[in-house]
Every structure is written in C-alpha cells, then in structure tokens.
C-alpha cells in the first residue's frame, strides 16, 4: 500500500497531499524551498510507486495550485509531468489540473509553457 503524504505548507514550501485512496497529488502555495531536490524526492517517489503498483489502473490526477516556483521546483515539476506523460503513453488514465490566479500572469505563462510539450490531458483554470 502506498503511503498517505501530508506536508503542511510554509512561506517558501507548498502544502502537499498525496492521497493513495483517490490517487490525487495536490500541491498548493509557493514553492521555493531551501533544498528543492530533497523536498520533492518523497513526492516523486510516491508518484512512481502509484504508477508502478501492480494491478492498479485507477486514474491519477495532479492537482496544482502553485503561485510561484523557483528553478529547482520547475525542474521537479517537469520530471513529474514527464513521468505522468510516459504513463499516459502506456495507456494509464492521468490528468493535470492547474488552478491559476487570473491576476498572476507569470504563473499562467509558466503553466502553459510546462504543459505545452506533454500529450496527456490537462486543464489550466484561471477563474
């Protein structure tokens, strides 16, 4: 059984919930933790475990409400998107929902740029 991860957000790191019941990975807040690689390591590992789970073909959702990402967080997000995209190409149902503040043009642009190269279904919601 994959674990349930809950991380309380801080000023510089997002609130995270990885739910093994719903297979929803939720990230919200601002993401510029001191050590981005260490922060995202268990989250990426959770995603990997979910996608590798034998006999489980339930849909996986990445739910993003991040308002700011530093360069390391962008790299981690790209890695997770690539992994999800690979699973999608292998036939798994996956989707990405990115909720953006309509006044935050920078994050809308970033979400579009991050998602332009993936083939999985995604939605950028700005309202």
């Amino acid at each position: 059984m994959v674990e349930h991860i809950k991380i309380m957000g801080t000023r510089s790191s997002p609130t995270v919930e990885c739910n093994p019941e719903t297979l929803v990975l939720h990230l919200a807040g601002e993401s510029y933790p001191e050590n981005t690689f260490d922060f995202y390591k268990p989250i990426a590992a959770w995603l990997e475990a979910v996608l590798e789970q034998d006999g489980d073909d339930r849909p996986v959702t990445l739910n993003v409400e991040l308002a700011y990402l530093n360069t390391g967080s962008i790299k981690s997000m790209m890695d997770m998107l690539d992994r999800l995209d690979e699973a999608h190409e292998d036939g798994r149902v996956v989707k990405v929902i990115w909720l953006c503040d309509p006044d935050n043009e920078r994050i809308i642009e970033l979400a579009e740029e991050l998602l332009e190269d993936v083939s999985l279904p995604y939605q950028i919601i700005t309202d």
Partner: peptide, 20 residues
C-alpha cells in the same frame, strides 16, 4: 531528447526569472 528539451526550457525560464 526530452531531458535536452527540458534543460533548454529551464534555462529560458530561469533567465526570465532572473531578469524580473
């Protein structure tokens, strides 16, 4: 190819952030 594309994209984004 994917990693190479990502690296280019990250560099572009990082440059933009730095300029801001």
């Amino acid at each position: 190819r994917r990693l190479d594309r990502n690296l280019n994209k990250i560099s572009r984004m990082s440059d933009r952030l730095q300029a801001e």
